[in-house]
Design a protein around this nucleic acid. Structure first.
Lengths: 169, 169
DNA sequence: CATGGCATGTAATTTGTTACATGATTTC
DNA sequence: GAAATCATGTAACAAATTACATGCCATG
């Protein structure tokens, strides 16, 4: 369901193509989902068949026509009634944490590397998020980015503590 | 794949039943996954067929026999080689954040309620996590819980900031 | 001239959820 | 007497990933 409302929700702000949606999700909604094209395009087709969105093909030179979707009244209604329902629980899959949990079977070096890699990744993510945050005016949209920043900062702090503990032991 | 290694990993510490695994995941590994029975039992059957685990049935009075699984050498080998590979990226689905992102279509009251509900849930989670943390001795295992605590605390801070912003505006 | 961005999609497979079915025992 | 815990499972369905297929344009 989440991806249905993701698409509907983004289209409720302005008409977009599937490609636009993907880009937007990647830039600003990493904490919501990281839906792939294989999810997004079929969802658009389904929504179109159900008349929750409408599509207009815009020819272009040198590349495939852009298909611009916009939400219909029907879609808007569905979106709004969903918005009023309580949010279902988060779902997460974190391989990194599982490896850490099982790390007793890892050499000290492998363990350190596992953590160091994560450290680098998290720092890079934080950089990106902060830059993204600067480009955003809309307060409501910045909330989600602020969430991500707060989460990334907390993780960084935890990683540093972990590394200190490992260095001592 | 994650659930395969989750099961293998837990069984690598000690033999367990499917029920035990589920319980353990719920208590200590909420940040890794929240796999349901419908995932866990079939995974155990598959692992058994592939001889990555072995099973022994323990009869009980008044309830179904307990099926205790333990990891085989084959399974252990697979687990260890997986442990050494780089961890794949986190996957998340957060309906709550999506609703917040789309909240411009929500009344001020609905918005406040959305946030208040989350606030309550996060506080409750934090409570549980802290209690759980007290019962755990194994340092390695406490790491994952510490991660969850840090994340929950960061979210709480963010929620408070949000609420303040809404009260002002 | 290679990389990345623009732009669409499908098919096969894998993965996971939900709801159902069953039923005794323990705890409040 | 109700609710939670113990304990197993399956079937139908929904959801999502991955890999593949195609091809031009702009930038460095």
């Amino acid at each position: 369901m989440l991806h249905r409302y993701l698409v509907l929700g983004l289209l409720s702000r302005r008409p977009m193509s599937g490609y636009d949606i993907k880009k937007h999700v990647k830039e600003s909604l990493g904490a919501v989902t990281n839906a792939s094209y294989g999810t997004l395009y079929p969802m658009l087709h389904k929504l179109l068949a159900q008349e929750a969105v409408a599509m207009q093909e815009v020819p272009q030179t040198g590349r495939p026509s852009k298909k611009v979707y916009r939400i219909t009244d029907k879609g808007r209604q569905e979106l709004e009634s969903w918005l009023r329902e309580p949010a279902s629980a988060d779902q997460v899959r974190r391989e990194f944490l599982l490896k850490l949990y099982l790390a007793k079977d890892l050499s000290a070096d492998d363990l350190r590397e596992l953590i160091a890699t994560r450290h680098t990744e998290t720092k890079a993510l934080l950089e990106t998020l902060r830059q993204e945050l600067d480009t955003i005016k809309d307060q409501q949209h910045s909330w989600v980015l602020q969430y991500e920043v707060a989460a990334a900062e907390a993780e960084l702090g935890w990683l540093k503590k972990l590394e200190k503990q490992l260095a001592t032991a």
